[in-house]
Design a protein around this nucleic acid. Structure first.
Lengths: 362, 362
DNA sequence: CACCCCGATGTGCACGTTCACATCAGCGGC
DNA sequence: GCCGCTGATGTGAACGTGCACATCGGGGTG
């Protein structure tokens, strides 16, 4: 039966025609079945005799056969690829989520194709999208949390389901998000509970959905606690910006706490305060957002809001693949991040912020 | 001629047969040419009349035609995809390089497919590689800097050129790397020049090529300066490990400086020293490696070795595509990283390290 | 015992593109 | 005026796979 396969137990690789990679037909010939049977083995079709199946598998092994994805994609018009549209993908949060997405996708037999957004101009977005569409992606995960991206996405219907990693409030897609608003509110409430009444928010760029949500959470808490509102500062997420903002802020000193929209800015901020001779948390408390790995090791250890980027990525894939396969999509529950209290926040020092206490003592 | 195309200037989309996406043949029919002519326009073949070309392009536009990558890949057996095999891809360095690779690849009309290594077991490596091979990648960039990965890579010949982002010293592939040895040597020499003679190296896992190279650079410098060698500590790159290592180290205190193999560990280290009441840089100097964005904002600002991860990624793609296209590959020049001196390193404080001074004074 | 159904397998075609080759008109040279 | 070359285009096949349908034998059912 398997005369082709071995001689003296020695595995002889039968001549694959030309230099070409072995195809389903080569396997079929060797296993003495039709190519269709081989195909059935590949897609484990139920009705196939175990004996036959084994013979085919052996032939595959012998020929080192590998299915040709292009051919398969051509005939099924399914690419088994999902796209990821990402901005700032080298930062800890997005990078972690992307890695998790890749892992989860691979587990489900899917491939991941990433397109980064260097800038967020409509052209760049369209270009990246075009790139992904040419890949014939079956679904899209968007980690590019600018409102503008979703405008473009809505305008140029891409024809595949997509999931965003931040709640956009739009109905044309599902979002799997961490509840940024609650996270930010909790962070602010934490400061309030420590007796702070003059709190500044160092926000992210307002076209970022997350930045906007965190700002909203902050405003909610400020409103609830009936605090006077300090105008938020709009930053760019970077530690460098945090540093410069901190330099400016330490001039006025009409506040006792700062809630930064991410850890990087918080770290830059603390750097500037240190330079200005302001003690954190003695004089000023600082709270960040994200809980990046170094957050607990900087000085002082940063109080922040922890979010699980891996979990978000993982769930996003599950959600997306459910849609891709037309399965019932259950309600999406938001992940609520948790506050991690560390050394950078402390009780407000009885007296009012400096500039007023100076006035008072005069 | 183009009666099909419009009525009253209104773009009428002619019926695409069934719900299928328009194919090259649909375009051909509309433009009243053969499908081959359309193909020629797509691959801009020289001998085609401008007039004809325009007609075809118009038809494409009208039908919103998009070439089918699977079909093209099937017949040309070229996927226009490069693979990236990465470990710890969510960390700043790798993540930045990956983003740069993606950008550069897209610029060259290539797609990028990533496979992360959760663990570095041979099975995981084989699995990831298998995943990429099924994608029919044309080339591979390896950012998984464990020696073991290259063992597996060598054993399971993948049949496509690959480039690694660290110099492995092997001849089966090109490496585009930053000269880690020189970087580490410079970092150590910096400490020596400040008068430190008792320097500990907090190394990375020794199966990591970079960790090994940095260790080598350290050892070179120690040897050159004729210092006594403290046994290096083998870490895992994480800030957490740096912290624990720092705790252990601060018990003995038989050193005046530490060179950490990356910034994260250096930051954890400084945290532990602070906890132990050891002043950095007053009593102990610390130097890191990588220059991650927060390095300059921690306290004290971290002296470190800066490397340009984007540049490495970019050049890797250029190198790889040159090989893929069988072009002449020019000599690969190593990028030499540069030392950035900040606040965490300072002149050794005249007296010997504590433990000896205690002994001396007794 | 005739019938039908089902499990196991085979046959041919379609997917959308490129490649090799064929065709055909025009043009210059002898 | 014929030959051959070249530019512009068309024709058919092939790439490797899955799908729809056909085939064939066996076993249960009436």
């Amino acid at each position: 039966m398997n005369v082709h396969i071995g001689v003296n137990g020695l595995a002889v690789t039968p001549e694959t025609p030309k230099g070409r990679a072995p195809s389903i037909r080569d396997v079929a010939r060797l296993a003495e079945v039709s190519h269709q049977t081989v195909s059935r083995v590949l897609n484990d079709h139920p009705s196939i005799r175990p004996e036959t199946k084994e013979r085919v598998l052996l032939a595959m092994e012998t020929l080192q056969y590998r299915p040709n994805r292009a051919a398969r994609a051509l005939v099924t018009s399914r690419s088994h690829t999902i796209g990821v549209l990402a901005a700032r993908s080298s930062e800890y949060g997005p990078a972690t989520s992307i890695a998790a997405i890749e892992d989860a996708a691979r587990e489900h037999g899917y491939y991941v194709n990433t397109a980064n957004l260097a800038t967020v101009t409509p052209e760049a977005i369209t270009d990246a999208l075009e790139h992904l569409m040419l890949q014939a992606i079956e679904g899209l995960v968007v980690i590019a949390p600018q409102v503008r991206v979703f405008d473009v996405l809505a305008a140029a219907p891409i024809g595949v389901p997509f999931v965003s990693l931040q709640s956009t409030g739009r109905s044309d897609h599902l979002a799997l998000s961490v509840d940024q608003v609650t996270g930010a509110r909790r962070a602010t409430q934490h400061l309030v509970s420590l007796g702070h009444r003059e709190i500044v928010h160092l926000a992210g760029p307002q076209d970022w959905i997350e930045a906007e949500a965190r700002m909203r959470g902050f405003l909610d808490a400020v409103y609830d606690a009936d605090l006077t509102l300090h105008p938020p500062i709009l930053g760019d997420w970077s530690a460098d910006f945090g540093y410069f903002a901190g330099r400016e802020l330490s001039r006025t000193r009409d506040f006792t706490a700062v809630f930064a929209a991410n850890d990087q800015m918080a770290i830059g901020l603390m750097h500037a305060f240190r330079d200005a001779g302001l003690d954190v948390p003695g004089e000023i408390s600082v709270v960040g957002f994200d809980d990046i790995p170094v957050a607990q090791h900087v000085w002082p250890p940063l109080t922040t809001v922890h979010q699980d980027f891996r979990e978000v990525g993982r769930r996003a894939v599950a959600l997306l693949l459910n849609q891709v396969h037309g399965r019932e999509v259950l309600e999406v529950e938001e992940i609520v991040p948790r506050l991690v209290v560390r050394g950078s926040s402390a009780q407000a020092s009885g007296h009012r912020p400096r500039y007023t206490s100076v006035t008072d003592s005069a």
